[in-house]
Write a protein that binds this DNA or RNA. Structure first.
Lengths: 336, 336
DNA sequence: ATGAAAGCGCTAACAG
DNA sequence: CTGTTAGCGCTTTCAT
């Protein structure tokens, strides 16, 4: 094993005390120019790199935070991750990325490890709706911010996306185009995201004195194939449909494909709106009208909130932030 | 600040020595059942979580590794990242993810921080072709594996994708379909990836006694728009082209769009082959024939190699692994 | 303006 | 089978 150069070696070489070395490294008290020079020189010569682990242990602050997401290969999450890393890096933090794989057991394991590694805070997109362990985690003294999930019966810092608005905006836009018979592809099981969207969607109809017929809702997975299936079912049941709102972009692509199979063109025959605004949505033919998930804003808000919590750890009441998504109008929709 | 429960507290509560506590935690020497019980009970009651930072400092092993990639929101990298995290997690490692943003300065900063945080190893997709600092890093005693980049004049462990084969397979397939006039969209500046691919591509022509006309190469960016532009230039210069090989999938989508603008259909009028095999390639219409980048295999090989290096740190000579990509035939190609 | 020394929480060599 | 104790490399109080 290679000898690790430490602060003591520097002190000896520079003929000063270890305290002085530490202080010049951290600029934490005044040191005469002469000593600074000697120390810096010694550090250079020995290729010294401070041991942050030792420092963290002493200081009880690791300058690393944990990010737990269900799946870092999902574009939504990887986008958030990248931006979080960017912001935090600029504040001298590193991020340990953990995949829960939508499994609460793994989530818990990761939480424990992160605690053990003394992270200064964590950002989490929880795997499930269960949040007892998150509360417990914060009680331990480590700030934790929940991202993009409404965990019921819990009072923790949360950064949410306004999915109600997402649904509302989509419906309102479709209505403005004259579409009143619209199909709705929902996820298989309810979930705050889908519930909110649906509420907003129906609200827009209401405001026009119309009624959104829930018979026009079909449930499917998040996948391309689910979109294909869904569209067929939808049109079988109601042939008057002139527009379709989907749960995500991939789903929308599937819908478009399914429609093509039926001999229907988008947007000429039927309009389609996606959700998420992943990069592909602007590449697809037709370019997809979609509700953009505010990835960058989420990363920004959640990072800053966490930083704030780390700086002022007193937790009196939970902070909630809600970020609006944005309707992006492109080529897959047109007036009736 | 909340009092952190430590091994001493457990020892006191369980009426044993700290050594015993440490040993039951780490199962590192035999302890009588009775004492184990007492210790475990004490740990539960005090909600004890070992401080891994302290352990790491002592053991000189942090059980965390660093992953430096240019951009974790790029699907290729996020895919690799996810799989690396998965494998390493199963071996009790965490991964600190760092984005270099293709900037060598940032890369260096990250390397230094990782060193300071005593990571047990790093996996890096270097930002540039410069690798002096990587060599230096390993000399310090921390294993480092270079992923998906051929760094010249350097003798370090490397996991590469066989881009030569990628180009070769694509060309061979196109030729088998009868396409001899094929356009080639290349990246703007040369780079081992593009060079290898081109070589392999030309080789397949040679093997058939043909000659790949480099006048059919057009350079563009990685983007959708670049694909559009490129295709137009390509067909202006050589109207006999019946197939196009692109640098990546997005590029291919652009090409398809550009072709559509020109009134040409894929694959009826012209065949298009992409590269990367990102999920969108199987969703696009037409479903894209592409050379799949072996994301999962890369993660697997690189993780295991790193683990091996950590286990046996003696570095005698660099290990090189080459992983073949895979041609996936779908709908965007057809015989002439 | 500088230094000595205690101690962060843990591991492991040594001693029994 | 168990305990005592010396550090890992650093920060920071206390003293000068």
């Amino acid at each position: 094993m290679i000898k690790i150069v430490n602060i003591r070696d520097i002190a000896k070489k520079a003929q000063v005390s270890v305290a002085t070395v530490s202080h010049v490294i951290n600029k934490t008290r005044h040191v005469s120019d002469e000593l600074i020079d000697r120390v810096v020189k010694a550090m250079m010569e020995l290729d010294y790199q401070p041991n942050l682990l030792a420092g963290s242990l002493r200081r009880k602050k690791s300058s690393t935070i944990g990010l737990i997401i269900p799946d870092s290969s999902n574009m939504l999450f990887s986008g958030v991750e990248k931006n979080i890393e960017d912001i935090l890096f600029s504040q001298n933090y590193n991020v340990i990325v953990c995949n829960s794989a939508y499994d609460i057991g793994r989530e818990l394991e990761h939480l424990n490890t992160l605690r053990s590694k003394m992270v200064d805070g964590v950002i989490i997109v929880p795997a499930t709706m269960d949040g007892k362990h998150l509360e417990k985690f914060r009680n331990i003294g480590i700030p934790i911010i929940i991202l993009d999930r409404m965990i019921p019966d819990i009072n923790e810092d949360t950064v949410l996306v306004d999915n109600y608005k997402g649904g509302y905006d989509a419906a309102k836009y479709l209505l403005s185009l004259g579409h009143t018979d619209v199909g709705y592809i929902d996820r298989i099981s309810d979930h705050s995201h889908s519930l909110e969207r649906k509420k907003g969607f129906a609200k827009a109809f209401e405001e026009q004195g119309l009624f959104f017929d829930t018979n026009n809702i079909v449930r499917g997975g998040f996948t391309f194939n689910a979109g294909i299936e869904a569209v067929k079912k939808l049109l079988e049941e109601n042939s008057r449909i002139t527009a379709i709102f989907t749960f995500n972009d991939i789903n929308a692509f599937g819908a478009i494909r399914g429609l093509a199979d039926l001999g229907l063109k988008v947007p000429e025959d039927i309009s389609v709106i996606g959700y998420d605004g992943t990069p592909l949505s602007e590449i697809y033919i037709p370019r997809l009208t979609t509700v953009r998930y505010p990835i960058i804003e989420m990363a920004d808000v959640v990072s800053k909130l966490l930083l704030k919590r780390i700086a002022e750890p007193v937790f009196k009441k939970a902070i909630k932030k809600i970020i609006p998504p944005e309707l992006i109008i492109r080529e897959s929709t047109r007036s009736k």
